[in-house]
Nucleic acid binder design. Structure first.
Lengths: 189, 189, 189, 189
DNA sequence: GATGAATGAGGTTTCATTCAT
DNA sequence: TATGAATGAAACCTCATTCAT
């Protein structure tokens, strides 16, 4: 049998793609990505049929990482506030700890290369606990007068605000994450 | 004497740029933008030295439009809540009424083509009333424990949440704008 | 006004394309064609939207050249045999005098890049006299028992035989052209 | 001991090559050919050292098929006309029955990938009876005033005319093959 | 100032061939 | 021998920018 496709190489390409997108936007060239992953230009295309497919897979990968992180050690039995804080903190920390991945994720998110199909594939697997938690929040506070989904959007939005501020005041990271949640929670209370 | 540069043409190019960015991202070609503005390819470069300059000017223009709209009929003498609601409503309506401009604005915002210098130039003109209002909000509620600037980020972020939701439920636009503000205001109260 | 598109450049590209196709087949690269025409790689695409379009236009051009040559000084009033010999001789001489053009024409003819639409466009202009002559031939000799179009195919085919033979015995060119027609004419008599 | 090379696989590759060339010209990729033959990409190169070698072998194979068909049941003792008609009919039927092989054969024939050496190798094996027959024809009718080889070219050329016409009028296949020969024979009589 | 032809670097993707398995 | 992943040169084409008109 011939050489097997190497998961490490696939991963290296995805990581390089995230790095390049963070550095130069969606215009990042496949040539640079390949070089960044230390593979030949052509090799990229044995792992991903096209640049678009690579970008869609990357988006999935990045979103998946966050969900995996949240689900690990999820406090299923705790109060809503504790669970909400867990979701908030874990996803926020991921964004702050991996700024390149986050930047790539945002760029992909607002662009048209990520298809609806890709967006729909996200989390149908283990979005479970997060969705359940957000669903409970949506039934409370101001959110109960607003369409379902708004609470989730609002949490994401408030996290963006925290991230932006952390970028300007990195020292206050811990406080921002905590107080940021308190701010968000005011809406849910 | 040579012909003078026409402000109409400049405007047409900026509008076409916004349209093209909304349609195909920052990869939008100068050729298409020029065609969209009904001018020759080369003409674009007599109004803007480079694609990057065009995009920076566009960003400024788009942000400026929002500020101009907020400042028109600004209720200087009203209570903070009334003023805040004005800011919220006017900027949000702009985004909802002009989806292409907003999409372009977001894409430019998350990209690196818009320089720090450009971002700093924003509103140094007439941001006045908005800044004053947001400053007052920043000193209240949860925001007073958070760095200055967080309140502004939070409002922008919450507006994004509203816009996303309006995109999915256009019928509820009016309610969303109003209740969205109520949600935001809970944090400031 | 800007520079006008130069017919000379267009012609140079077409000629270079014929040369390159003769030399290396339809795989001839646009880069080499451009270089052969002494224009930049990109320039080729301001004259022809794609390689395929260039090749289709070239096919048209080559076929057109032959028809133009035949129609010049066409002996409209002469006997059928004289007119047929005129068609035979002129088109054959074109092929023999311009071996590269002919080679390109043949390669294009048997390939799929030349579309049906292109083939249909040929000669609808001035194919006139040729068609009329071939039509008369088709009604005579062995051809009258065969479908219309067969006579034309047969003439072309017999010319190919002559060209092949001239390639091997260039000295006998004149005799081959003449006796070749006599051979063909035997079928029409 | 190592496995022996399988003649079936070799044959499958040649057939797939013919099919692919018919479908997409000489640009047909070795990868597609391999897939069409149901072997791995690399396997193709254990049977043929290069794409060019494969194409040369294919040309030989295709020409060989025709000769084999003609030689089977060749009426050695019959009159010249009967023998000539046999050559005509058998080779023509092969072309008509196997359009892909013929198309590939033509494309290869007009291209430069098939070397002179390959062309010379053809039929040195069993071209015997055909050559003898064509030799006799070359000494008769109009052909006796033309170089040797012209008769053969002429027969091939007239067959092309028949094939072209059959492609347009498939119903008349039988008549075209027969009357086509009559047309050709007029030149030899 | 306005135009759009001209440019050539750079983009994505394909491909013949090699070679580890 | 068979496989198909790996390679990087080269293919076609796009594009920001320049400049003759």
């Amino acid at each position: 049998m011939a050489r097997a496709k190497s998961p490490e190489k696939r991963q290296a390409i995805l990581q390089a793609a995230a790095r390049e997108i963070a550095a130069s936007g969606l215009g990042a060239s496949t040539a640079k990505i390949a070089k960044g992953a230390d593979v030949a230009e052509g090799t990229l295309f044995t792992y991903f049929a096209s640049k678009d497919e690579l970008f869609n897979e990357l988006y999935l990968e990045l979103k998946g990482e966050v969900y995996r992180r949240i689900n690990a050690e999820f406090p299923y039995k705790a109060t809503l506030q504790v669970r909400a804080r867990h979701v908030w903190t874990e996803s926020l920390n991921w964004s702050i700890e991996r700024p390149e991945e986050r930047k790539a994720s945002v760029q992909l998110g607002v662009s048209d290369v990520v298809t609806v199909a890709t967006r729909e594939r996200i989390g149908s697997q283990q979005r479970g606990a997060v969705e359940e938690t957000l669903g409970e929040i949506a039934a409370r506070g101001v959110f109960k007068d607003l369409p379902p989904g708004f609470a989730a959007s609002a949490m994401g939005a408030m996290q963006d605000a925290v991230i932006d501020t952390v970028a300007r005041k990195p020292r206050q990271k811990a406080v921002l994450v905590e107080k940021g949640f308190d701010a968000f929670w005011r809406m849910a209370k």
